[in-house]
Every structure is written in structure tokens, then in C-alpha cells.
Simulated assay, not measured.
Amino acid sequence: MKRLFLTTISLIFFACGNNAQNKTVTKPEIANADPVEVPAENGMEKAYFASGCFWCVEAVYESVKGVEESISGYAGGHTKNPTYEQSNTGRTGHAESVEIIYDPNVVSFETLVRVYFGSQNPTQVNGQGPDRGSQYRSIIFYQNQEQKQTIEKVKAEVAKDYNKPIAAEVLPFQKFWVAEDYHQDYERNHLENPYIRSVSIPRINKFKKKFPELLKENAH
């Protein structure tokens, strides 16, 4: 019991953030806005997802073939230039998110959506694992109607495997705010961190076991 208690305390203390709040929900003007489409650059496209702590999500997507880079940041809220400390209060409306830069000739948007649902508990509301609060809520952002239809199709398929509703919001993309430098590649650079060892690595290993055909040869 003592070991279990200490482990629980450790996970809480070393979670991606400790100030989880449940007060903020997506504002109607954001949910009903027209999506912003991000133009491709040098043949590379961008996609945006929120699924709990961005340290975990960034590492998952960086292991996928066709993904050039995964960047941690904030999206889905109403505050300009949010900081980590502000977002972590749950009052900015933003969720910890990732920007995925990918080659559509290698990996499709639909596959990225399947990775999204397959690398989390899709029924957990306002969080993943020990990270709780609206800043950790699940969101898939679409940039056009074709992407929205793809998301809804995959979401409906995934829902058949669960007895609880799928928690992910489907929102029109507006803007992505890049997080502070020290958050980038956090899992790769901080393997000694108890949260990374106890939460991030088990999550990515579970994903790798589920989708071995999608992994890069050098996936960490």
C-alpha cells in the first residue's frame, strides 16, 4: 500500500501539469467558426491534434513513418500568445496540442486520425491518464470539410469498440501557438523524468505494439 501511495503521489507531482481545472469549455464562436486551411510547404502538409499531455503526443507522432516533425503547442482557445503557465490554469480555453508536419505521399490524414484514436483512451473526458483538466481535453482539428468527414468516419468506427461515448471534440482549426522551447522533444530529452518513465514511455510503447506497421525504422 505504501509503495502504491508513493507511486500515485509521484505521478501526480510529475504530471505534465499540476493545476488542472475543469472550468473552461470551447466557446461557441470557436466551435462554429470557419476552418482555417494551412497551405502545404514543399509538399509537406500540417495536421493538428490534442490528446492529453503534448509531451506524450509529440513522441507518438514522431515515431510514425511520413511524419517529418511534431511540434508541441496550444490550440482551441480564445487567448492570444498563451504561455504554459496560463494554459495550465485551464482558463485560456486552449488544449495542449501538437502540429504534425507530414508527407501525404507517405502517410494520409486518415492514418494520422487513426493514430490519434489508437494512442489514447478515447473515452476519457478532459484528460489522459493522470493529467486532468480542460487543457488536456481531446480535440481533432479539421481544416476543410473533407478532413471533417474523415474524422467523423473514423470516430464512428472507433465508437463501436467502446461502451462509453468518444470524448474527442471535432473543431475547426483556427491557430496553433508554438509552446516554449523546453517543451519541444521533451520525452526524447528527459528520459530520466519520472513522468516520462511512468506515463509517456508506457503510452508510446502501447501504441508501437498496436501499430508496428506504421513505425519508422529508428522509432525511439
Rank of each mutant, 00 (worst) to 15 (best):
V113D: 03
G129E: 08
F109C: 05
V115I: 15
E110T: 14
P130V: 15
R132F: 03
Q143I: 07
G133C: 05
D131C: 06
Q135D: 00
N121I: 08
K148E: 12
Q145V: 12
S134H: 05
G133W: 01
F141L: 10
G129L: 08
N144C: 09
Q145Y: 00
Y142P: 13
L112I: 07
E110P: 00
E146L: 11
Q143A: 09
L112D: 11
R132K: 15
S134T: 15
P122F: 10
Q135T: 02
Y116I: 12
E110G: 05
R137E: 01
T111W: 04
R132H: 07
S108T: 08
Y116N: 11
Q145L: 11
E146R: 15
V113I: 15
N121K: 01
N126M: 13
Y116H: 13
S119F: 13
Q145D: 15
R132E: 01
S138L: 07
F109D: 06
P122H: 10
P122V: 07
Q147G: 12
R132Y: 00
I140E: 12
N126S: 07
Q143W: 05
V113K: 00
Q120Y: 02
L112T: 05
F109P: 03
S134E: 08
S119I: 13
P130I: 15
Q145M: 12
G118D: 06
Q135F: 02
E110W: 07
N126I: 05
I140R: 11
